[in-house]
Each structure stands twice: as C-alpha cells, then as structure tokens.
Write a protein that binds this DNA or RNA. Structure first.
Lengths: 190, 190
DNA sequence: GTCCCTATGTATAATAC
DNA sequence: TGTATTATACATAGGGA
C-alpha cells in the first residue's frame, strides 16, 4: 500500500496505476524490495541470455542475496557458471602474472576477525541485536576463509607449474646428453 | 545500411527510424552485432548495478567475447568480481567435495547448514536462545570449511611431493649421464 | 514467491557523425 | 568504439489475486 521508491511526493490520487519513476537507491520497504528483486533478477537474466545469443558471447551472472530465503542465483550462457568463472580466473591470473604482483590477503586479518568474533560471542548474553553482528561476522569469516584458501591454492598451483617446467627442462637436458653419448660412441667405433 | 535482425520484411520506406522488433537469435551482420553488443553490454551492467543497489544484493557479471578486439568484460557490485566468484565457488565446491566420497566430515552438508542457519535467523524474533544455536552453526560452518581446505591442501601437497621426487630422480639420471660422458672423453684421449 | 493489469519509464534498433 | 536522434519495443512500479 506504500509507494516503494519515492515517498512523500504528495501527489497520490485515488489510484496511481502504471509505472512511476524510481530513484536508484536502496528500497526501504522490505516487501517492495523483495518484489523488485524478483522482477529485476528475472529481467537481468533475460537480458544476459539475449546478449549471449544475439552477440555470440559467453555471459555469466551471479547474484548473492544475504536476506530472505533465496541465497544464490546464477545464470550462464554455457554449461556452468563454473566454466565461465574458470576462464575468467585464468584471464585475471594471466594478467596478474604479467604485471607480477602478489597481493597477499594477510593472515592477520583472519586473526583479527576471530578475535572480534570471540568478543562478540562473549557479549551475546542479553542483547538480541548482536545476532545481526554475528551473521555479519559469519559472512566475513567465510569470505576470508575462502579468499585465503584461494590464495593458497593459487600459490600451490604456481609451485606445481614451476616444478613441471623444471621437470620438462631436465628431461630435455637428459635427452641432449644421451644424444651426445650416442654420437661419441659412433665416432669411437670409426 | 542493412536491417540487422529481421531481413526481408519488404516494408522499407524511405527511412525507418525508431526501433523495430528484434528476434532473439544470432545477429548475422558483424557490424550490427558489434554495435548491439556495446549497447546491450552497457545496458546489462547498468541493470546489474541497479539491482544491487535497489535490492541490497551482490551481483557479478562476466562477459567473454571471442571476437573483435574486446575480450573480457566484467562488473561487480563489490570490490572485485573475484570476490563474488570465490563466494560462489566456495558454495559449489564445498557441496561437491563434501557430498563426495570423502565425507568423513559431519553428516550435514554445507548447503543444509546454510539453510538451517537462515531458518534460525528468521526465527530469532522472540527466542533469545537461538543465538547459541547460531554460534554452534557458525562453528560447524567454519569447521567444515577448514576441513575442506585441509583436504584440498593435502591433495596438492601430495602432488608437489610427487613432482619433487620426480625432479630429484631426473637430476640423478642427469648426473650419471654426465659422468659417463666424462669417462668416455677421458678414454678417448688415452 | 507467481501471475495479471495498466501506465509509463527505459532501453535500444536503425542510422548518421 | 562514443555520441546523438527518433520511434518503438520492452521492462517494470504499483496494485491486486
């Protein structure tokens, strides 16, 4: 019963059907927000699909909503979002390697988070609204964990790659040495 | 100078300004396709941004075009697409790994945990003691994440170890070959 | 969450620069 | 690619079921 976006225009007639202009800012009313989310999510994914078909490109969309029942929404023009993500990651990583930077997610950050978490846990006695903080913390915790894991994985992948290269090089050297030996044997026979 | 989408309508007047209906299928004309791509890409990203602001959600978009000069396009409501992707990946991967044969972890899957967590959150209205459950859930969540990370690390460590061994072996073979060569040279001189 | 409806705001196809 | 114009197709706010 309430205008969602622009409140207080003082223009309400008996019935305002049709679309009204909507300012792009957080929709306050929870219900309106949910409805808008549904509609626009569908719209976005439809657009993504159209784009991929019309222009022959791969598109991936990920939507993460922290509230409500729905949690994760995704769209992908190819088989799986993961596929696109992997290609995306490879892009990024390639660029990173070129520019040669190793931005670290410090493990200190996690430590701080944990400390904060503990503090919050101890204060949870009476105050009901620390629940929100807790949720927030949980999210942060998870994100951090994921990031660190990812970083670690990346580093290990680099190591593996490195070792594979070394191995290849050694194999080649070995081959050359073998050839040399063969040639020498031949010469000696002559 | 050519209609992009629907060719051969036989309706061309002197000038057909304005938008025409567009079938959603691969745009044949390369030029039109490129133009459409630009416009629609911008449109999509704008929509994604609006969605994230209006509905307070995180949105990530990745577009990969194989043709033309432009290659990769991305949008993210948070700092980086990578961040969102990681969160997405963690979802998928966690469920995959946990539901796999290595389910030495708790009987509960991560997805279920998250769902339960949400349910609990929605029920937190009056009952103060669900906070405890929440904390418990958080711990479980974190433990699961840690376990998964551990498992992955372990696997990678095994790989690295394997490679290191291979490397060592190759080095030794190389050394032997070198020695052989040296001996042969000596012999020849004699 | 879904579907329908209306009225209107917006995106965009075609085109030219 | 970016910008601008025009006319129209499409998306969607608000409301109700």
């Amino acid at each position: 019963m309430e205008t969602c976006g622009n409140i207080g225009l003082g223009l309400k007639k008996k019935k305002e059907m049709g679309r009204r202009k909507l300012e792009i800012k957080r929709i306050q009313d929870k219900n309106c927000r949910q409805v808008a989310f549904c509609k626009r999510r569908q719209g976005l994914i439809k657009k993504a699909n159209e784009l991929s078909i019309l222009c022959i490109v791969d598109v991936g969309v990920v939507i993460i909503s922290k509230n409500g029942t729905g949690r994760l929404h995704e769209y992908s023009s190819t088989n799986s979002v993961t596929g696109i993500l992997q290609r995306y990651e490879s892009h990024v990583q390639a660029e990173k390697e070129i520019s040669g930077e190793h931005s670290m997610y410090s493990s200190m950050k996690i430590g701080e988070l944990l400390q904060t978490a503990e503090r919050q846990l101890e204060e949870t006695n009476a105050d009901g609204h620390t629940v929100t903080d807790l949720i927030h913390l949980q999210n942060e915790l998870q994100t951090s964990l994921t990031q660190i894991r990812s970083k670690k994985t990346q580093l290990m992948l680099e190591t593996v790659k490195d070792l594979l290269e070394k191995e290849k090089q050694l194999r080649e050297e070995k081959k050359i040495l073998k050839n040399n030996r063969a040639r020498m044997k031949k010469k000696r026979k002559k």
